[in-house]
């Protein structure tokens, strides 16, 4: 039967029909604002702990900060979620997982880069095993702090909600270049000499 190749189900081309219907609906103004309202209060982050800011992420969903008030419900599988919170450093190994999870998620999807490490490396800036998060997935909100307090994460979620209501689309996908993934001494020397 095969899945994505032709996408033909038994009652016409399901994919095109549904896409047309959805795009028609999305053009209607009131429908658009309703979708935005739904997205705003239904930001479910996927369970992907990239690094140590995960402890503060956990505290943020704990009782004192309780981000579920905002409809923010950490959830297990990537297929049902629409938000990645990159918690801190992304290493070479983790970068691939982040990219795969991002691609597994259904559109529209958003990304919050939490912590200094996710922004530009933080105190691990010159490590041989880290990748800046902005080179892996498109990022909507950068959140400073090392680690950011849970209140700061709440603020980032509210900022994201505001940008959704203002009808801003999610950040566009970035070009992931096929540069050497893991430079050794030779690559480093070349990069430095340039």
């Amino acid at each position: 039967m095969g899945g994505g190749a032709d996408g033909v189900a038994y009652f016409g081309n399901l994919e095109t029909v549904s896409k047309k219907a959805v795009s028609f609906l999305k053009k209607q103004g009131y429908v658009k604002s309703m979708i935005n309202w739904g997205d705003k209060f239904s930001l479910w982050p996927v369970h992907l702990m990239t690094s140590c800011c995960g402890t503060e992420f956990a505290a943020a969903s704990g009782p004192r900060f309780d981000l579920e008030r905002l409809g923010f419900l950490p959830f297990g599988g990537p297929r049902q979620t629409n938000l990645i919170v990159i918690e801190g450093t992304t290493t070479l190994k983790m970068a691939r997982s982040v990219r795969i999870v991002w691609e597994q998620m259904p559109a529209p999807k958003w990304v919050i880069a939490m912590g200094a490490c996710a922004m530009d490396g933080g105190i691990f800036y010159d490590s041989y095993n880290t990748v800046p998060a902005k080179d892996i997935v498109p990022i909507d909100i950068f959140l400073a702090g090392c680690p950011p307090r849970p209140e700061a994460l709440a603020r980032a979620v509210v900022m994201l909600q505001e940008s959704i209501v203002k009808n801003r689309p999610p950040a566009a996908d970035i070009q992931v270049t096929a540069a050497p993934a893991t430079p050794g001494p030779k690559d480093v020397v070349e990069a430095v000499s340039k």
Partner: peptide
Amino acid sequence: ADLIRFSFQ
């Protein structure tokens, strides 16, 4: 809200 989000994903 969750239903609306799911419907248009």
